[in-house]
Simulated assay, not measured.
Amino acid sequence: MKQMSHGFEGDASNDVLARMLDISVEDVENYVTLDTNVSDEGQLYSYVAIFDRSTPQHVLEAAGAEGSYSVQLSVNIFDEEDQD
């Protein structure tokens, strides 16, 4: 399988995406590209998880992407949850 790039490489980002999409980190690495929904002025409205057309049906179903191959995600998904 080919490695997909979501633009926010790193274990922490993959973990967050996997948790938000309810899929495995391996599925994120293999099938997800992360895009952004921004205004003309550059304001970030949301992230969009875009699934490769080769994504297995069970992964699409788990992530809620069946039929559309994409899922809208909050602009805050990468915010730090706990800071000590």
Rank of each mutant, 00 (worst) to 15 (best):
M1A: 15
K2Y: 03
G7P: 00
F8K: 02
F8T: 02
E9K: 05
E9M: 07
E9N: 04
G10A: 08
D11M: 07
A12D: 15
A12M: 14
N14F: 13
N14Y: 14
N14I: 09
L17I: 00
L17G: 00
L17A: 00
A18H: 10
M20S: 03
M20G: 00
L21E: 03
D22H: 10
S24E: 08
S24I: 10
E26G: 08
D27K: 06
V28F: 13
V28K: 02
E29T: 08
V32Y: 11
T33Q: 10
L34P: 00
D35V: 11
V38C: 12
D40I: 08
G42P: 06
G42A: 06
G42K: 04
Q43E: 15
Y45H: 15
S46N: 14
V48F: 07
V48K: 09
A49H: 05
I50G: 04
D52E: 10
D52N: 13
D52V: 04
R53D: 10
R53L: 08
R53Q: 10
S54M: 09
S54L: 09
T55K: 02
Q57S: 10
V59R: 01
L60C: 01
L60I: 01
A63N: 02
G64H: 05
E66D: 07
E66Y: 15
S68Y: 07
S68K: 09
S70M: 13
S70P: 04
S70K: 11
V75R: 12
I77Y: 01
I77R: 01
F78N: 01
F78A: 03
F78R: 00
E80A: 14
E81C: 12
E81G: 10
D82L: 13
